[in-house]
Structure formats: structure tokens, C-alpha cells
């Protein structure tokens, strides 16, 4: 039983990382209606930008570095959309083209990271920490901070979507872009802001993944991508709250399964859940009409 609760605690940590990344992916998907297959590499690039601020000549504290790396990734995402993805999406009716471009972008970003930072396993410059006993859980202070960040970010996203004009415009665009445009919403501006948010959240997710795992490699984001996809599909593609729920479910399932099976395969459990969802509830837990 103790093992179960330990795993439950780790599951909450994984869920926190997943929630940030899955919501970031879903926000952008809702607006542009295509999947960004380079999202895992956005995460990795954000994580390495943080590393640069953290270990480079600035030598900032990891949490400040995280803010810098994430915002930097947000800006890059806006530029990538402005000069690469958006022109392709506008020019071709079929989504094939822009999907292949994001797939190619993933290869390019990955190799840029390899070329700049090398293939070695790296780690952030953080003080060595003691493990804290909190109830039945065993967690580090950093893991607790990550959970707090994720939770407050989810609340912020909720408030933004429900109360602000930006959030309402985003939801309107996500339901029907043409209708939103004709009702006077500046869709171009909303798209840019969404890419900034999505990129920032990717960078943040990549960084906290590096913090909680204790190391980072250029391919870490790409390998994490299918876990994100699993969370998004299980939750219901295009639904922000579905992404959050999917993240919790997948996060807990992967870590708790590690109690029973070889931990090397714990992430593959996410794929099993994805397949089960496809078989029994293909539109996901929180299906949205018109998106599945």
C-alpha cells in the first residue's frame, strides 16, 4: 500500500508536467485546427534555453531561468508560426502540407539542439535536495513547486478562458473560425497570442520535465510527445478541460503501473490507454462536437 501511495505522488508530478504540455498543445490545436508535431521539440528547445540561462554566463537561479527559457520559446513559437506554419496553412487547403511541415520542423529543431548543445545528457544547476515526507508521499521541494506551478497555471487558463475577452475570443475561434472572423474578432491577433501561449507552455513543460527527471537530453521532448498525445486523445481532442483530465489520468496511470510492471515500460502504458480509448470511446472523455 505504501508503494502505491508513493507511486501516486510521482503520478501527480508527471500529471503536472503533462497538464502544462497537453493544455499548451490543445490551445494551439483549437485555434489553428492542426496538430503541431514539433511540439515535443518545442519543449526540448525551451528546456535547453532555460539551461543556457541557468548554466551559461547569466548563471541565474533555476526558477528565474525557467521563466526566461519559457518566454523565449514563446517568442520563437510566434516567429515560427508567422514565417513558416501560417504561410503553409493559408496556402494549401489540405492539412497534409502543414502537418508535414511541422513534422519536418521537429527534425530541424532536434538537430539544432544537437548541434548547439551536443548529444550528452545534461542537468540543471540546482542545489541538491532532501526528500520530504508529506503524508504518505515522498517528494522533493522542486517537485512540489512544479505541482504548484502547474495547478496555478491551470486555474489561470480556466479564468482566462471563462472571464477575459481574449479567452472568449479564443473559444469562439475554436468553435468556428469563420463565424468568429465575421463577428469582428481579430483572428490574426488571437492566433499570434495563442502561439505565444502554446510556445511558452511548451518551454515551461520541457523545463519542468528536466527538473523533475533530474536530467535533459535533446530527444526527451520528442519521446514525451506520445504521452502528451495520449493525454489529449484520452481527454478528447480539442478540449482544454479534457486535456487536463487526460493529463491527470495518464500521469497517475503511468506511475502507478510502474509498481506492477518493469518501470522501463511505464510510458507505454499511456499508449495502451490511448488504444483502449480508441476502441471504446474514440472521441475521448470530453468530446467536443465537430472536432472528432
Amino acid at each position: 500500500m505504501q508503494q502505491f501511495w508513493l507511486a501516486f505522488g510521482f503520478g501527480l508530478v508527471t500529471a503536472s508536467v503533462l497538464a502544462i504540455s497537453a493544455v499548451g498543445l490543445s490551445l494551439q490545436f483549437g485555434i489553428t485546427n492542426y496538430i503541431n508535431f514539433a511540439y515535443g521539440d518545442f519543449m526540448a528547445l525551451g528546456a535547453f534555453l532555460t539551461l543556457e540561462v541557468n548554466s551559461g554566463f547569466l548563471h541565474l537561479n533555476i526558477w528565474f531561468a525557467m521563466v526566461g527559457g519559457s518566454l523565449g520559446m514563446g517568442v520563437l513559437a510566434v516567429l515560427i508560426n508567422r514565417f513558416l506554419l501560417s504561410p503553409f496553412a493559408r496556402r494549401f487547403d489540405k492539412t497534409f502540407y502543414v502537418l508535414i511541415v511541422t513534422f519536418g520542423l521537429s527534425l530541424i529543431i532536434l538537430n539544432v539542439i544537437y548541434a548547439i548543445w551536443g548529444a550528452n545528457v545534461r542537468a540543471y544547476n540546482m542545489p541538491i535536495e532532501q526528500v520530504l515526507h508529506i503524508g504518505p508521499f515522498l517528494l522533493t521541494r522542486n517537485q512540489l513547486i512544479v505541482m504548484a506551478i502547474s495547478l496555478s497555471l491551470m486555474v489561470l487558463v480556466h479564468i482566462m478562458l471563462k472571464t477575459t475577452r481574449l479567452g472568449k475570443s479564443m473559444r469562439a475561434m475554436s468553435d468556428n473560425t469563420t463565424l468568429a472572423m465575421t463577428s469582428g474578432i481579430d483572428t490574426k491577433r488571437i492566433t499570434t497570442i495563442t502561439w505565444f501561449l502554446s510556445g511558452t507552455m511548451a518551454g515551461l513543460a520541457g523545463t519542468v520535465l528536466g527538473i523533475t527527471e533530474g536530467n535533459l537530453t535533446p530527444a526527451s521532448g520528442e519521446l514525451f510527445l506520445f504521452v502528451i498525445f495520449a493525454a489529449v486523445i484520452v481527454g478528447g481532442v480539442g478540449s482544454i478541460y479534457g486535456a487536463m483530465a487526460g493529463a491527470v489520468l495518464i500521469g497517475l496511470a503511468t506511475e502507478i503501473s510502474a509498481v506492477f510492471i518493469n518501470p522501463s515500460y511505464k510510458l507505454d502504458v499511456a499508449f495502451v490507454l490511448l488504444i483502449l480509448t480508441l476502441l471504446f470511446r474514440p472521441s475521448g472523455l470530453f468530446a467536443r462536437p465537430g472536432k472528432a
Partner: peptide, 19 residues
Amino acid sequence: LRTDYLAMVLISLSLVLYD
């Protein structure tokens, strides 16, 4: 699944097979 969700499942499959 529509095209892009299928692509998501397939890329996941590729990573899992690899794993």
C-alpha cells in the same frame, strides 16, 4: 479517426515500438 488524429496515433505507435 480523421487524418491528423491518425497521424498522432501512428507517431505514438512508432515511439512505443521503438521503446
